[in-house]
Design a protein around this nucleic acid. Structure first.
Ligand SMILES: [Mn+2]
Ligand SMILES: [Mn+2]
Ligand SMILES: [Zn+2]
Ligand SMILES: [Zn+2]
Lengths: 145, 145
DNA sequence: CATTTTAATGCAATTATGTTGCAAATATAA
DNA sequence: TTATATTTGCAACATAATTGCATTAAAATG
């Protein structure tokens, strides 16, 4: 693996965001994980490296620019994951299924699983679909056996 | 329409819950609405009729007994709706789609719209599916035209 | 009906999550 | 190097939710 930092710096510049320590740290943490990351976890890991408020603002800016997307877990807690493909400030393309493990509480982006189209009652205009599956992730299902 | 109160009292007894004023009031409010009801709204309507903590405990008890189900809206706020059919303390059967209007923020239980089955990656065990559609409800879509 | 038992409520305190305004700091453009 | 525009940190506030404990009230008992 080569230098992430250079890549992240480009990403920030491309989006008109200044290259600051808290922002690079958030990108570093998120990219090093295999599942979506909760705000509380980020806050804990970053400790006093950055103020709570700064973290919220970094996350908000990244979301607006299409760098990360937010997923609410079944408790309503905000979790964040780096957007996989062509998300931008103008629109997100993260209509994949999210899997919330009942055991380890991780949230996985199932990028390969698309949300099936839906018939809704007459008059309703669907804009976005948000599907969260709960159950046991592969790793936790293993351990149970 | 005949006397709701009698019906609610039976419901409470059936579930081993005492017939108390806050519980009856919550059932009264929820049943009189066409969409799911947020905790903040309930709190506001009930005012000083019941303590905040009591409201939380009433909602929790009802959810556990399968009397109501919780839906988190796109902001992560808890909303509650009376369960339509055979939900019980042992399991809920509310796998219908929920519709969250971007304009009026109401949450509709689309009881007739089932969530389509899903293929997930090997190893994952799906337990529940939770699909929230956002957009414009029939009433709001009308007004826009 | 009176009494006992058990469940539910109210209150106070605490924790978690998220927001806003503003002054100070700092990254970048000039 | 200086100017500027953005970003940060801090303090204060807002809202959602939980816990422990004493008090109250519902239902069961006799
Ligand atoms: Mn995702
Ligand atoms: Mn519902
Ligand atoms: Zn797991
Ligand atoms: Zn609407």
């Amino acid at each position: 693996m080569e230098d992430n930092t250079a890549r992240f710096e480009k990403l920030l510049v491309k989006n008109g965001l200044k290259r600051t320590a808290p922002r690079l740290q958030v990108l570093e943490i998120l990219s090093g994980r295999d599942s979506a990351t909760s705000q509380p976890y980020l806050e804990q890991v970053m400790g006093k490296d950055a103020d709570r408020v700064t973290l919220y603002r970094v996350l908000q800016a990244f979301e607006e620019k299409g760098i990360i997307h937010k997923v609410l877990d079944q408790q309503g807690t905000a979790n964040y994951a780096i957007c996989s493909d062509g998300c931008s400030a103008h629109e997100h393309h993260d209509e994949h299924v999210h899997f919330n493990c009942d055991n380890c509480h991780k949230i996985y982006c199932l990028d390969t699983v698309k949300i099936p189209a839906l018939k809704v009652p007459a008059g309703f205009k669907v804009n976005h679909l948000n599907l969260i599956a709960t159950g046991l992730c592969a790793s936790c299902a293993d351990k149970v056996n």
